[in-house]
Design a protein around this nucleic acid. Structure first.
Length: 805
RNA sequence: GCCGGUGUGGCGGAAUUGGCAGACGCAAAGGACUUAAAAUCCUUCGGAAAGUGAUUUCCGUGCCGGUUCGAGUCCGGCCACCGGCACCA
């Protein structure tokens, strides 16, 4: 009798052995495979079972790739700058540097419990000056290339975090981090010109093996639209107003024009009579936050008193101001075609502006419109020379026609805005810029980087729009690297996304003091082949990283312009009823006790067994018993069989190949939950056979151990050793299935009458259709009471007899 | 409002992409072993009806309809829940 499965002893033993003799070694000959987890920010709450899931998925995939003969790059690090870390430190009343270091140590210990095959020699930490030296270096490079610039304008401001935010960080008008309502604040900001890369960021999505959902979200976020800019003269004045439209086909239907209240010409368009109302409207709009604007669904507006001239037909159309027009999209001015746009229709109806239909719906003009007809399909009417054209065709051709006529030009527009890159907080990389009264903005010389974050007593946010760094005179006051005169340092810091936008490049050369990454190592080990993490970063981190990668490619640091070839988003683990695990809800399940009671191997397998990896799953502790029992059964089967050492039977060989085939296919398809059920199913079958034969042959058992190794590494390694191997199971190779050997001689196929199964017959696998049908009919003879109209036989699948009564 | 995703037993889920619906597991019930319990092993486990019984028949994958010899899977029309975007002209 074999000894019972003792997960504590086995796991402790192999933890030590692997530490002594790592299994993932680079012999310089194997091809590389870079499998990356989104690195965590070291929160004080530690890990829960949901965090485990992603790390287990990536580790299983990594070990699978290793067994397939790759040198694995599987690093881990810490995204330790930023608001969460700083807010936690403030709450606990300790310096963020201290709390961050403690949290890193804690989480590292917890992550090591997963027994993932991380290469800790590659570890990075974004708050390490040797790391953020390069975060700052990238900023300096961007500044020199004109991609980082200063601008003062009303930005999104979180009154709770007391800092400015990027557009990507505002969710439904609220702060992405804390949920507070975002307001507007006029601030001098550092911006990154991500818009310069809009077209490439959009087009290169095609190259990526990413979930369609994420690609779609990025596409929508970039928001490319095709249209035209059209110039409208102002009646009685020399200036003109340019509008942007995606529907130039409806130009004849433009019956008014609306400008954003912030438009440069807005105030000047007012007449004696409208002056007061116009100024009030502009003032009120400036006082409104974005959220107010969003919530006021009812349209407001004011007539300026001036008129524009429709360039197509010379019609005089009134110019209005309204805050439903956004100042920073297009030209901040629109032409309004109430007949064919919902918003314009609503506005025109409210302010009694004429509505002119220019596209016939179903060949007819709608007698009295109750809503806009927004489709670009139908024949043009009331449109001068354009009458009779198809709207869909005209929509495409009009921009070029307008350009020819000299009244505008063909244009594309993007929703993507430049990235607000400065934060008024302490815990981030200082922006390496010096403001010199003579020389202007001068970057800190590259050889002087890193510009380290000064130690301060008070790091709490000021709320004034100034960073806490501004209060440290000895740090702020410096000399200009250019002219040597007195100058002041930039006091804003970078957002959390700065370090995470490029950290994956640093892992492979994390100790390089002279370069961000050596070109040789970058060419050899990058980019990332598989990136695993939650979907919440679809338009934040993942977009920023793509932007950074393209920039670094353009300046020759690296030779590829997409960071992550393949992306996998794992679903979230929730508490009961799909409620997100959180400390405040009290539904957090910690992995620590589960590892103690059931072992790391059981928890790893259960994390996968709870459901398809890409979907959310509700955690239920009870289910882990199932995989624990399975591991016990597998342990017993394997150790008993290794002792018994029975010869292989045909049946065993067949099952062995089927097992390899099924597990490999499911694993490659990322159907990890069914891999686990597959192991259970085959183990049950093998146990049946073992009961009769006194065991299972060694080769089959060894094959199963190798297949199981990525999922339950400890037990696999222990059994592998018991089977007499001195080297690690991870130095064997992933088995391949011989499809010939899998074939059964006899197969079971159902016999149906009119699509309903009436019998199941056993037939030779190579039986002819005719014979199969004959046998099938025999089996259901007593139920064939009518006239047979059709006989269907799909070889190996089904027989269906269609009969009529 | 627009765009995605999901909907299958008491529960988590499976179904080789059009071919025996409910694999595998949890929970539950009954039994074996045990002085007893735990552990382990065996059996049952979608619903309804008929039969002493092995079994048989009908219904069943959110709802309604269609295509097909055959639909959880394909098509059309709805419903519910969960995400994303939301005055981008």
């Amino acid at each position: 009798m074999a000894v019972p499965y003792n997960h504590r002893a086995i796991e402790a033993k192999w933890r030590v052995n692997w530490e002594k003799k790592p299994v993932n070694v680079n012999d310089g000959k194997k091809p590389k495979y870079y499998c990356l987890d989104m690195f965590p920010y070291p929160s004080g709450n530690g890990l829960h079972v949901g965090h485990w899931r992603g790390y287990v998925i990536s580790d299983v995939w990594s070990r699978f790739k290793m067994l397939q003969g790759y040198y694995l790059i599987h690093p881990m690090g810490w995204d330790a700058f930023g608001l969460p870390a700083e807010n936690y430190a403030i709450k606990k009343g300790v310096h963020p540097a201290k709390s961050t270091a403690e949290n890193v140590a804690n989480i590292k210990k917890q992550i090591q419990d997963i027994a993932a095959i991380y290469d800790w020699d590659m570890e990075v930490n974004t708050t390490d000056p040797e790391f953020y030296k390069w975060t700052q270096w990238i900023f300096v490079k961007m500044f020199k290339e004109g991609l980082a610039y200063e601008k003062e304008f009303p930005i999104n401001w979180c009154p709770s975090c007391k800092t400015g935010l990027a557009n990507e960080e505002v969710v439904n008008g609220c702060c992405e981090r804390c949920g507070a309502t975002v307001t507007k604040k006029n601030l001098r900001q550092w911006m990154l010109k991500i818009t310069k890369y809009a077209e490439r960021l959009l087009n290169d999505l095609d190259k990526l093996d990413w979930p369609e959902k994420v690609k779609k979200m990025q596409t929508d976020w970039i928001g490319k639209s095709y249209g035209a800019e059209v110039d409208f003269a102002i009646d009685g004045r020399s200036e003109k107003i340019t509008v942007y439209t995606t529907r130039p086909d409806t130009l004849y239907g433009a019956t008014f024009m609306v400008l954003a209240p912030e438009h440069a010409l807005a105030a000047s368009l007012a007449t004696e009579e409208t002056k007061e109302a116009v100024e009030k409207y502009i003032y009120d709009a400036s006082m409104k936050s974005n959220v107010d604007r969003l919530q006021d669904k009812e349209k407001t507006g004011v007539f300026t008193g001036s008129y524009a001239i429709n360039p197509m037909n010379g019609a005089k159309i009134p110019i209005w101001l309204s805050d439903y027009v956004l100042a920073d999209y297009g030209t901040g001015a629109i032409m309004c075609v109430p007949a064919h746009d919902d918003r314009d229709f609503e506005f025109a109806t409210k302010f009694q502006i004429p509505i002119i239909q220019v596209i016939a719906k179903d060949g007819k003009e709608i007698p009295s419109m109750t809503e806009a007809y927004t489709e670009a399909s139908g024949t043009m009417i009331n449109s001068g020379d354009w009458n009779g054209m198809e709207s869909a065709v005209l929509k495409k051709e009009a921009p070029a026609m307008i350009e020819k006529m000299g009244i505008g030009k063909k244009t594309v527009n993007y929703k993507l805005r430049d990235w607000v890159f400065s934060r008024q907080r302490y815990w981030g990389e200082p922006i390496p810029i010096i403001h010199c009264p003579k020389c202007g903005n001068v970057p800190v010389p590259e050889e002087e980087l890193p510009l380290t974050l000064p130690q301060v007593e008070s790091y709490q946010p000021t709320g004034t729009g100034e960073s806490p760094l501004a209060a440290i005179d000895e740090w702020v006051n410096t000399t200009c690297p250019c002219c040597g005169g007195p100058a002041k340092r930039e006091t804003n810091t970078m957002p959390q996304w700065a370090g995470s936008s490029w950290y994956f490049l640093r892992y492979v050369d994390n100790k390089n003091a002279d370069e961000l990454v050596s070109r040789e190592k970058a060419d050899k080990y990058l980019p990332v082949d598989m990136y695993i993490g939650g979907v919440e970063h679809a338009v934040l981190h993942l977009l920023y990283s793509r932007f950074y990668t393209k920039f670094l490619c353009d300046i020759g640091v690296i030779d590829f312009d997409e960071p992550f070839t393949k992306l996998f988003n794992q679903g979230m683990i929730t508490g009961k009823n799909g409620i997100k695990m959180s400390k405040s809800k009290g539904n957090v399940v910690s992995p620590d006790e589960l590892v103690q009671d059931y072992g790391c191997d059981s928890l790893r397998m259960y994390e996968l067994f709870v459901g398809p990896p890409e979907l959310d799953a509700e955690w239920d502790d009870r289910g882990i018993d199932g995989v624990y029992r399975f591991l016990n059964r597998f342990w017993k089967l394997a150790s008993d069989s290794l002792e018994a050492n029975v010869p292989a039977t045909k049946e065993m060989v067949k099952l062995r190949h089927k097992l390899v085939y099924d597990i490999t296919r499911r694993l490659e398809g990322f159907s990890l939950n069914t891999v686990i059920s597959g192991f259970m199913e085959y183990t049950n079958k093998l146990m049946e056979i073992a009961k009769k034969q006194g065991g299972i042959d060694k080769e089959t058992i060894e094959t199963a151990i190798v297949l199981l190794a990525p999922f339950a590494p400890h037990i696999a390694e222990e059994l592998w050793e018991k089977a007499g191997h001195e080297d690690s199971v991870f130095h064997s190779t992933w088995p391949t299935a011989d499809e010939e050997a899998m074939k059964d001689d006899e197969i079971q196929i159902p016999v149906q009458i009119n699509g309903k199964t009436r019998a199941v017959i056993s037939v030779p696998v190579d039986i002819s259709k005719e014979e199969a049908i004959a046998k099938g009919k025999e089996a259901v003879a007593d139920k064939l009471t009518g006239t047979i109209v059709k006989e269907i036989c799909v070889p190996g699948k089904i027989i269906n007899i269609v009969q009529k009564q």
